[in-house]
């Protein structure tokens, strides 16, 4: 049995057009690269996540700033941030465990114990799985809901979009839709993130008189309170956003929670 060192020397001494050397060099380069990339990605992930988290918080703040009068109401109610509560999506009821402050929705989505498979026919947002418990952000005054903010997500053209949907007290008028994360085609689908497009959603109504979810994007001229113009050149992304809202407002998403809120209040 030769020692590893002499094996290595033997390998290096092979001519460069030798098959073993070609495959060996290719393999070793690939392994080495994979290790370097993996180490960098894993060790830097907490730092990157902290930045993303800070950005999400900043966007939530920004969204509150764009809502007319919201800051005044908050000042009047004596709160400077929204209350975070956790909701069991199936029953629509608030849950007290785990702690809303430390609850990580992404982690829960990927944890088979804490997530459920979405039935293909119900999976409008093409997510595959969703967490059992999701956070909601509420603004209330004297026990009355003023604003409900829901985290939503769904597949666009090439990435998973994440957004926050803020609903007014009637639970059907959109106060704001903010895309918080996307990796769609720059210049096309990525325009979902621009204020110009997001502003189109404010004031739209997600349900009609009978309570059906009717919000949708249309190509061309949007008419009425339930339609929003699609991003030109990015129909799939636009439809993705509409489907994401329809899914998360529907029975499989926050539907039970919103029903409960309508009937029982806080």
């Amino acid at each position: 049995m030769r020692s590893p060192v002499s094996l290595w020397r033997g390998f290096l001494a092979r001519p460069n057009d030798d098959r073993v050397k070609i495959f060996g060099v290719a393999f070793l380069t690939a392994v080495f690269s994979a290790v370097v990339v993996t180490v960098a990605s894993v060790t830097l992930e907490p730092l990157q996540d902290a930045h993303l988290e800070a950005e999400r918080a900043a966007r939530m703040e920004q969204m509150l700033d764009t809502l007319p009068g919201m800051r005044d109401i908050m000042a009047e109610a004596g709160v400077d941030a929204l209350t975070t509560r956790l909701v069991d999506l199936e029953t629509g009821a608030f849950v007290e465990e785990p702690d809303p402050e430390t609850y990580d929705l992404r982690e829960a989505e990927n944890d088979p114990e804490r997530s459920v498979e979405i039935q293909p026919e119900a999976d409008l947002a093409r997510l595959g799985r969703r967490a059992r418990i999701a956070p909601v952000y509420l603004l209330e005054r004297d026990g009355d809901i003023l604003l409900v903010v829901l985290p939503v997500s769904g597949k666009g053209y090439q990435s998973t979009l994440r957004a926050t949907l803020a609903l007014h007290a009637d639970l059907t008028t959109i106060a704001a839709l903010t895309i918080t994360e996307q990796a769609e085609t720059p210049g096309l689908g990525a325009r979902a993130e621009t204020p110009q497009w997001q502003d189109l959603w404010a004031g739209k109504e997600v349900t009609d008189e009978t309570g059906q979810i009717v919000i949708d994007v249309v190509r061309g001229q949007a008419k009425g309170p339930h339609e929003v113009d699609a991003i030109s050149g990015a129909t799939i992304t636009s439809n993705g956003v509409a489907n994401m809202l329809r899914y998360w407002l529907g029975d499989d998403g926050f539907g039970p929670f919103l029903d409960r809120l309508r009937e029982e209040g806080m």
Binding site: L12, N16, D17, D18, K21, I22, V25, A26
Partner: peptide
């Protein structure tokens, strides 16, 4: 450089 096979 001395061990990169020309083919790849």
């Amino acid at each position: 450089r001395n061990h990169i096979p020309n083919a790849i």
